[in-house]
Each structure stands twice: as C-alpha cells, then as structure tokens.
C-alpha cells in the first residue's frame, strides 16, 4: 500500500487530506428506506400505575391502608463494627410489612452492613461486632436459632447468584429441611411442586419458564436469574425480605420488572432495599432512610425525604453534591 493513497483510492497529500477531513463530512453509507420504519405499538403499563419507569414523575401505587402496615423488625440504638471500625452508629429504624423501606447513602455509609446485620449475615465476616438491639416480632434476634432467623429474614444480593442446579432445585433447596427424610429422596412431591410454583409465581417468573423447570438456572438471563433468587428467597415464606442493590447488575427493562415486583410484594412481606439509585428509591420506597458515614441522617416518608429534606446533608446528597 502506498502511503499517499487514501483508503478510497484518490491520490492526495497529507495536507490535502487533513483539509478535506476538516471541511467535508466523511463519506457515509446511505441508508435507503422504502417505507416508514414501523415501531412496536405502545403497550399498556405492566402493573397499572406502578409502571413508573416511563414517566418522568414517578407515580407510586396507592399506599396500603394504615391498618395493613405492620411492624416486623426494629433496630434500637444499633452500632455495628468490623474490627475496631464502627461502620453503623446508633441507628434506630422500624421495618414494616406493607411498605418498602429504602436505605440510601454514599458508598461506605454502612447501609449494606446494616442490611446484612438484620439476618446476622455480618457474622460470617471475621471481626464483626454489634451493640444495641435488633428484634424480630419483638424477640431479640440473638435469641433465635441463626438458620431459623435467616429463613424468616431472607436476602437477595447484588449479583444474581443462583446455584448451578435446575430452576426447580434452586427453589426446592430453599424449602428443603436441613436433613432430608431418611430413605426417601427429597424429590418432586406434589406439595413441593406446588410450593416451588407458588414462589416462582410470586417472583413473576412462573409464566416465562413454566414449561421447563428442569433447565439449568445459570442458563437464564441476568434479570430472570435475579427473579429466581427472589423466588428462592420467598420460598420459605419469610416475614422480611432484604434486597441489597438487587438491580445494579441488570439492564433497565429487567430493573423495571423487578421494581414492579417489589412494589407488588410489599403487602405480603416487609421489604428493605439498599440502593445507590435515587430514582429507584423514589419509584419503589414508601419510607426512606438516608445514611451518611454510619449515621442515620434522615428517616421519613419518601416524598418528604426527596422533596422536602430536613437535613442539609440529605439535600446535598439528593441533589448530587456528593456520593
């Protein structure tokens, strides 16, 4: 190839070429369209008014009546530490069924640690320490058997983490007792099948995969995997569902699906969600807790925290001044 030939075969000098590049637009491929492009017809929102992603101003589903809101968990003067490092400082919060509680705040503000302390998952990290009370239905959670607690307060993680088994086995595993009955293999009993299908239905996954529950779970899409994880977490009928940035690894459409799901679930289970995404918090939360450097800075109804924050630090965070 001779150096003074441009890719289109015209002979030119370097200066001519750069002049041409500067003045004329580069040659483009023409797109010939013989018909108007056809787009998919607009569809009805998935979940009535709850389909918030499309609208600029989020419209939340109607708040459940006060009678349906019921306190499940509570932290009182909760301090949490890793080693010598206090990462949560004196946090008192109620967790109620019938509403979604969103924990917002910058990275390192302690929200994930707070979330993980609710089902004692912090304990698998060496050096974790706690002061203050966490109660589930009025009982201090240290007085509950830990695996029993985790079945009652289950958790969904940031990364979808289904087990390398079939879809069915993923959910059935959550339901299985620690020790399967002797001699009889834990397999598809009718009750188990019903329970698995019920969990998948609650997680909005049942209709998509109804035909083939024996497919490997890792073959599902990311969003489906996350909903499978939600189904798995719901299978044992927990009282509280903890969600640790459940959508941060997902695309916007899967995110919208899961947000609708969260809003729909709040009446049957108390939900706590940690999120970095303020729009998401605005779309799904009924109450918002803003944390900064381990402290609970502000707690209140979502509209109030987002529209009329009382604290300057909340106002700064929400307006994007830091974090």
């Amino acid at each position: 190839m001779t150096s003074d030939r441009d890719p289109y075969g015209q002979e030119s000098t370097v200066s001519e070429r750069s002049a041409a590049l500067a003045s004329a637009p580069p040659p483009v491929r023409r797109i010939v369209v013989d018909r108007e492009p056809q787009v998919a017809p607009p569809r009805a929102p998935v979940n009535g008014s709850a389909s918030a992603t499309a609208t600029a101003q989020p419209v939340r589903a109607a708040r459940p009546a006060a009678a349906l809101v019921r306190e499940r968990m509570r932290t009182e003067g909760l301090w949490l530490a890793y080693g010598q490092n206090w990462v949560v400082r004196d946090v008192s919060l109620p967790v109620r069924q019938g509403e979604v509680l969103a924990l917002i705040g910058a990275s390192g503000s302690g929200k994930t640690t707070l979330l993980r302390s609710l089902n004692r998952l912090t304990e698998i990290t060496a050096g974790a320490a706690r002061s203050g009370r966490i109660t589930l239905e009025g009982t201090e959670i240290y007085e509950l058997e830990v695996n029993d607690l985790r079945r009652r307060v289950s958790m969904v993680f940031q990364q979808p983490n289904p087990f390398p088994m079939s879809i069915f086995d993923n959910v059935a595993y959550a339901l299985a007792e620690q020790r399967p009955p002797r001699g009889r293999r834990r397999r598809h009993t009718p009750e188990l099948e019903l329970a698995v299908e019920d969990a998948l239905r609650r997680a909005g996954l049942h209709d998509e995969i109804a035909g083939d529950l024996e497919r490997p779970a890792l073959k599902l899409s990311g969003g489906q995997q996350q909903r499978l994880c939600i189904a798995r977490a719901l299978a044992a009928k927990p009282e509280v569902l903890l969600l640790d940035e459940p959508c941060s690894a997902l695309d916007p459409i899967s995110t919208a699906t899961i947000e609708d799901l969260i809003v729909g679930l709040r009446e049957s289970v108390a939900i706590v969600i940690v999120t970095h995404n303020l729009q998401q918090a605005q779309r799904v939360a009924d109450h918002v807790a803003f944390m900064h450097l381990g402290e609970l800075v502000e707690y209140g109804p979502a509209e109030q925290v987002f529209e009329r924050p009382r604290e300057q630090r909340t106002r700064d965070y929400i307006s994007g001044a830091f974090g």
């Binding site: 089902n119 998952l121 698998i124 695996n147 029993d148 607690l149 985790r150 079945r151 289950s154 958790m155 993680f157 990364q159 983490n161 289904p162 087990f163 088994m165 595993y173 959550a174 299985a176 620690q178 994880c229 798995r232 977490a233 044992a236």
Partner: peptide
C-alpha cells in the same frame, strides 16, 4: 463467596451448603 452467602442467607448450615451446593 456469594455462592456460600446465598446458601447461608436461605438459612442453611455450612454442612448443608457443602453437601448440596
């Protein structure tokens, strides 16, 4: 580690997690 966490979060012991997952 998230595989183990997922199993612990479902209320499974270390032994069950080892055996089943």
């Amino acid at each position: 580690g998230r595989v183990r966490e997922a199993s612990f979060a479902l209320g499974k012991t270390r032994a069950t997690t080892l055996r089943c997952v």
